[in-house]
Simulated assay, not measured.
Amino acid sequence: MTRLTLYTTLGCHLCERLETLLAVLHRGEYRLERVEISDDTALMARYAVRIPVLADAAGDELDMGFEPPRLAAWLEARGRLDSSAWRRLQAGGLELEPEPSPAREREPLARRPAGRRYLG
């Protein structure tokens, strides 16, 4: 099983796109740990303008993984690209529908100023 880390923040639509692409293009099982960057000053300094950032267990990072060719190349380099799904996606034979993330929607509002989180 592949272990991956996604540096993200609440409401990041590019992060959601990356997660959707990952579900389609990753071959085999994976475990995705989501790290909320707005809870940590150091993470904000490192990732605020780069999210989503996907990292593998070795710490190798991928910026802009929401772009299918970038994610496909990154997964291929790790032997985890589902080549047939990638070909179907390139040919327009796959529709990408974002999967709902109920765990993120249940986050307590008390941790978010005025019910929202902002990077700025």
Rank of each mutant, 00 (worst) to 15 (best):
R17Y: 04
R17D: 15
T20Y: 08
L21D: 15
L22N: 08
V24Q: 08
H26Y: 07
H26K: 09
R27N: 11
Y30E: 03
R31C: 03
L32N: 10
E33Q: 13
R34E: 05
R34P: 03
R34G: 00
R34L: 08
E36D: 15
E36G: 03
I37N: 04
I37H: 00
I37K: 06
T41R: 14
T41N: 09
T41A: 15
T41D: 06
L43T: 06
M44S: 12
M44G: 12
R46S: 06
V49Q: 08
I51M: 00
I51K: 02
P52Y: 04
P52H: 00
P52L: 04
V53R: 04
V53H: 04
L54S: 08
A57M: 04
G59W: 00
D60N: 04
D60K: 01
E61G: 09
E61H: 07
L62N: 02
L62Q: 00
L62F: 00
D63W: 00
D63C: 14
M64Q: 12
M64C: 07
M64H: 13
F66P: 02
F66W: 07
F66V: 01
E67T: 04
P68R: 14
R70E: 09
A73D: 15
L75T: 00
L75Y: 00
L75F: 02
E76T: 06
E76V: 05
A77T: 02
A77M: 02
R78C: 11
G79I: 01
D82A: 12
D82H: 09
W86I: 06
R87N: 10
L89Y: 04
L89S: 08
L89F: 07
Q90N: 11
A91V: 13
G92K: 14
G92C: 15
E97Y: 12
E97S: 10
P100A: 14
A103R: 09
R104E: 14
E105S: 05
R106G: 06
R106Q: 10
P108N: 12
L109H: 06
L109M: 05
R111V: 01
P113F: 01
